[in-house]
Simulated assay, not measured.
Amino acid sequence: MLSDYLRRHDGVITLAQARHAGLSRQSVNQRVRSGRWRQCSRGVYFVDDRPFTDAARVRAAVWSFGDQAVASGLAAAWWHGLTRFAPLDVDVTMPRSGSGRKREGARLRRRDLAPADVVESRGLRVTALPLTAIEAAVRGRRNRDVMDRALQHDADLRDLWNAHLRNKGRYGSPAARILLQAAADGEHSEAERLLTKLMRAAQITGWRTNARVGGYVVDVLFRRARVVIEVDGWAFHSDAQVFQNDRERQNALSLQGWQVLRFTWLDLVEYPDRVVATIKAAIRV
């Protein structure tokens, strides 16, 4: 029972869990003194017969704040598979009434989360995917695409809005609202306006918007250069049929000799110089 538990929980165990598995406090202390177990914090241990992975580090950090603690922010995003790398400091949320001090390697926030905003994943309490996505997305520009990845997987835009409204007033709430508005249904036209603004500022000429070509109406057309630009909003992939239709249209235009460039709202906001450089390279004739 103990071995199976340790295997499923990355080699991390709490004193309460060890006692539930049949070990006494004295047995736990003996394992620590012998070097078989390493004490990560008070009442949290790591069985030192395996690598101390990022998963073990995140789990140990969260469990060190008690059984009501929750992994949140970028730590939760990594746990859900929305980011590639685990953060150096683990974001932990615990109730306002809870006890616990800040610890090295952990970033503690006190607030009360609604039951809908907490899930258990692989034996660890973490913020649910919708809240995780909007909180992690505002933690620096390089993390903005976390929300996009969440929408590509199991998250629904309405769920993200509901999580945002349940947690108004938290850190990053105004920035999250802007991102959510950008992902709303009307965002596509806003992204088109942003694209045309970028092209005008870069003095790119010879284009038309909402032009018909090859039996389709495209967002931007460079007829002489035979280049088409299509703009995807963050939520474009939430509708599988729209996604499929867009790809079929792109393939048809490519077969007719048109070069098709696709940009997302995130591209236009975060990487405008790259967008402009790509367009200039494509239309150079």
Rank of each mutant, 00 (worst) to 15 (best):
G206Y: 04
W37Y: 14
R212L: 11
V138N: 01
D267T: 15
E270W: 09
W234C: 11
I279P: 04
W63P: 05
L180S: 02
V70L: 01
A202T: 08
Q250S: 15
D273K: 13
R8H: 10
H20N: 08
R224M: 09
R109E: 11
R262D: 07
L15H: 11
S72D: 11
R57W: 02
T93L: 01
L131S: 02
D239I: 00
R139T: 15
I178P: 00
H20P: 00
A136Y: 06
E135A: 04
T14Q: 05
L157E: 00
R142W: 09
F52C: 14
W207K: 08
D48K: 13
L15P: 06
S34H: 10
V275D: 04
G123Q: 12
G105Y: 13
Q259N: 15
V62I: 00
R50M: 07
S24Y: 02
A150F: 01
Q181I: 13
V70N: 07
G214T: 12
L88Y: 05
A225I: 11
Q68T: 15
A55F: 05
L23D: 03
G66T: 08
V275I: 02
G186N: 12
R33D: 04
A176E: 10
S97A: 12
R101Q: 00
R103D: 05
F222M: 04
R57N: 06
R149E: 08
Y5M: 09
L165P: 13
W161G: 02
D156F: 06
L195T: 11
A77T: 14
R247S: 06
R224C: 02
L198G: 04
R166N: 03
T278I: 04
R223L: 10
T53I: 07
I279S: 05
V47P: 10
E104A: 12
P51V: 09
E104S: 11
D4R: 15
G233E: 14
Q39L: 06
L88I: 09
K168L: 13
N245T: 08
T205V: 14
D159C: 08
L157A: 01
A175L: 11
A155T: 00
F46K: 02
A225E: 12
G140R: 02
V12N: 01
E230L: 11
A155V: 03
S99L: 05
V44T: 14
G35V: 03
P87T: 03
A155Q: 00
D89C: 12
R139E: 15
H237P: 03
